[in-house]
């Protein structure tokens, strides 16, 4: 019945800056999607989501987003997530303009 689980990353927006963050394997938040944890197990994904939702004072709107393994790390599957990882297309603003990927 249920479809097979596809890999995910756990993502949210930072409470103070409002920008996109991803959860790392160590449980920290990163502004570089390539450093995010690629979650390949459904039960683990659910635990990560509960953990993220508990960090109410750090992030807003946590959810699991489709991702695939890439050369540097996880990469977006859907174009919405690609835009979130990059920034708007009309100006060189947002993630694409930030070199401090840590």
């Amino acid at each position: 019945m249920s479809r097979p689980f596809t890999p995910k990353v756990l993502t949210a927006n930072d409470l103070l800056r409002g920008d996109v963050v991803w959860l790392t394997e160590a449980g920290d938040w990163t502004r570089d999607m390539a450093r995010a944890e690629l979650i390949e197990d459904e039960a683990h994904a659910q635990i990560r989501l509960i953990e993220a939702e508990a960090q109410n004072d750090r992030v807003v709107g946590a959810y699991l987003a489709e991702a695939r393994a890439g050369a540097r790390g996880p990469e977006p599957v859907h174009f919405r997530e690609a835009f979130r990882s990059r920034g708007p297309s009309n100006y060189f603003h947002g993630k694409q303009a930030e070199s401090d990927h840590v």
Partner: peptide, 8 residues
């Protein structure tokens, strides 16, 4: 005040 894709 909204929270949008990349920022508030």
């Amino acid at each position: 005040l909204y929270l949008q894709l990349h920022a508030y």
